[in-house]
Simulated assay, not measured.
Amino acid sequence: MTSDILYLHSGPEAKMSPERVRQLLDSGEFFWLSLDGDDDTDLLRQTFGFHPLAVEDAVRGGQRPKIDQYDGYTFWVAHGVNTQGDLAEVHIFFTAQYVVTVGADCEALFAEVHRRLEMHPPKLTSAPSVTAVYLMLDALVDSFFPRLAELDERIDELEDAILKAPTQDQLGELFGLKRRLVTYRKTITPQRDLMARVLSGVDTLEGMTDEDLRYFRDLYDHLIRISDMVDSYRDLVSGAVDTHISMVSNRMNVIMKQLTIIATVFLPLTFLTGFFGQNFSFLVNHVISATWTFWVYGIGLNFGAIIGLVWYGRRSGWFGGPSA
């Protein structure tokens, strides 16, 4: 019965002793042992007798999703997402009698799996080991959905903020989201292909029946959905990055246009003040001889040049109006 599965968690505070493991193995009772991976090499290699290559993969981590068949047991590497949004890697050794999981980031997830196993066990017709593995994989796969929903909301918020006022921090966050989605995709794609191999019979699991395949096929459907969501969100992030760059470029063009207009307006003033500032004797003796000459040549000519330049700029469309 699935409700009779004995769940044992050996964390940093309470290590599982080899004597206790031998008692469980000799009893013939099905059990599920969860390890955190620290200082468990001897237990996995000597007490359980797992292959050194599988033990090395489980202890070191950093493995891609895979299934390795060994004599008497199967080694499965699967991934999920923890509450911080980082990938959580789980290594599963399972036989008809027991399941051993190694993963330091999934204690809360495994506890929730055991609670589901006790309260609402799935109606699989297989051995308890297949039921436990299915629930673990189901929890790992479903852990992607809330994190992806948070990413979707954050992308929408960033898009709205970019349209209002683009900042450098927004661009950095967008690149961080893109890296996270790329990391998810590197994990989801091989995990999806691995599930397809199980459904097609390329990788067989001991004790699995045709009815069990219906549940694993549901996991495959979820992985396809997650893969499509990751690709869609990655496109959204790329679009948000392009929008940010476009907004910054538009703001820069507006600023450059304003500065150019100001410089153009001051250009005739600079020329006139520079020209009349040369103090030619002809100007002093013949032109600048009365008060009206100051107002006409000194002030009126400058304002006339500005007015003429503004009039020409409006006709040419410098200020956003239609050009003549």
Rank of each mutant, 00 (worst) to 15 (best):
R192H: 11
R192L: 06
D193M: 08
D193K: 07
L194N: 01
L194E: 06
R197A: 14
R197M: 13
V198T: 02
L199S: 05
L199M: 10
S200T: 14
S200W: 00
S200G: 15
G201W: 00
E206A: 13
G207S: 10
M208G: 01
D210M: 08
D210F: 01
R217G: 13
D218R: 11
L219T: 00
H222G: 07
L223F: 03
I224L: 12
I224S: 00
I224Y: 00
I226F: 06
D228A: 11
D228K: 09
D228T: 09
D228M: 06
V230D: 00
D231G: 10
S232C: 09
Y233E: 12
Y233W: 04
R234I: 03
D235T: 10
L236R: 11
V237G: 01
S238I: 11
S238M: 12
G239W: 01
G239A: 15
G239P: 07
A240F: 04
V241E: 07
V241F: 01
V241M: 13
D242C: 08
S246Q: 12
M247I: 11
R251C: 03
R251H: 09
M252F: 08
N253E: 10
N253A: 13
V254G: 08
M256F: 05
M256Y: 06
K257E: 04
Q258R: 14
Q258K: 13
T260G: 10
T260Q: 13
I261C: 07
A263N: 08
T264S: 12
T264H: 04
V265Y: 03
F266P: 03
F266V: 02
L267W: 09
P268G: 01
T273R: 04
G274F: 03
G274A: 07
G274S: 04
G277V: 05
G277T: 05
N279F: 04
N279S: 06
F280K: 07
S281V: 14
V284T: 14
N285D: 14
N285M: 10
H286R: 13
T291S: 15
T291N: 15
T291V: 13
T291D: 15
T293L: 00
T293D: 12
T293Q: 13
T293F: 02
T293A: 09
F294D: 02
W295V: 08
